Simulated scan of single mutants.
Amino acid sequence: MSTQAHRLSITQLASCDDCAVLRITGELDRGGEELFMGTLGACVDAGHRHLVLDATALSFCDSRGLNCLLAMRWLLQRRGGKLLLAGAGRRLTELLARTGSAELIPSHRTVGLALGELPESHRPVWPPATPACEA
C-alpha cells in the first residue's frame, strides 16, 4: 500500500493485526495533512492500535505536521495503542523537543528498536521478507 499527495508519500512496510509500520517520505505540512490523517486513520480503522512511522525520509515537518502527529497519538492512545517514531532527523527531533512533544511521541533510531517497545505478539515481522521479484 502506498499513497501520495502534494510532497508527501506514505508506504506501508509491514503489518500484523495490531500494528503497522509506515514509511513517511517528503514533507508533512498543511499540504500533506489530509493524506496523512486519512491514510493513518484508515490503518486505525483496519484495527491497527500501534503505528510505527519510519521518518528517515521525512524532509520537513512544521507545526501543522506536528499537530497531525499529536492527533494520531491521541487517537491511538484512546484505543490502547501507541504512535512510535523511528529514524527521526535532527529537525524533527528538535521540533519535538522544543514543543515538549518528545515525551509524548517516543522516537527511536530504528524501526526495530521502536517495535521493541511493543509486546512481541503485537509486532509484525521485521524486517519484512523481500518479495522474490526484488531479490
Rank of each mutant, 00 (worst) to 15 (best):
M1A: 13
M1V: 11
S2I: 11
T3F: 12
T3K: 14
T3H: 13
A5W: 03
R7F: 12
R7K: 15
S9D: 09
S9E: 13
L13H: 04
A14I: 00
A14V: 02
S15Q: 15
C16R: 04
D17Q: 14
D18R: 12
D18M: 08
C19T: 15
C19G: 01
V21C: 05
L22Y: 06
L22F: 08
R23K: 14
R23V: 00
R23L: 12
T25A: 15
L28S: 10
L28D: 09
L28C: 10
L28M: 11
D29T: 04
R30K: 06
R30T: 14
G31L: 05
G31Q: 07
G31C: 07
G32K: 07
E34I: 09
E34C: 00
M37N: 15
G38F: 01
T39K: 07
T39E: 12
G41L: 07
C43D: 06
C43S: 12
V44Q: 04
D45H: 04
A46H: 02
H48R: 10
R49M: 01
R49I: 05
R49Y: 01
H50K: 01
L51T: 04
L51G: 03
L51N: 05
L53W: 10
L53P: 03
D54K: 00
D54V: 02
T56Q: 12
S59C: 06
S59D: 14
S59V: 11
C61S: 04
S63L: 01
S63E: 09
L66Q: 10
L66A: 04
N67E: 10
N67C: 09
N67V: 03
A71R: 09
M72P: 01
W74M: 12
L75C: 06
R78M: 02
G80N: 09
K82Q: 15
L83D: 05
L83H: 08
L84A: 03
L85I: 03
L85M: 07
A86K: 04
R91L: 14
L92C: 02
L92G: 05
T93N: 11
E94T: 14
L95N: 00
L96Y: 08
A97C: 06
G100E: 08
G100M: 09
S101H: 08
S101D: 06
A102Y: 04
A102H: 09
A102G: 03
E103C: 04
E103T: 12
P106L: 06
S107D: 05
R109E: 15
R109D: 15
T110Y: 10
V111A: 04
V111L: 07
V111S: 06
G112R: 00
L113D: 09
L115T: 05
E117Q: 13
E117T: 09
P119W: 02
E120F: 05
E120Q: 14
S121N: 12
S121M: 05
H122A: 15
H122C: 14
H122E: 13
W126K: 00
W126H: 04
W126F: 07
W126N: 02
P127N: 09
P128G: 05
A129M: 10
A129R: 13
T130R: 15
T130W: 02
E134A: 12
A135D: 13
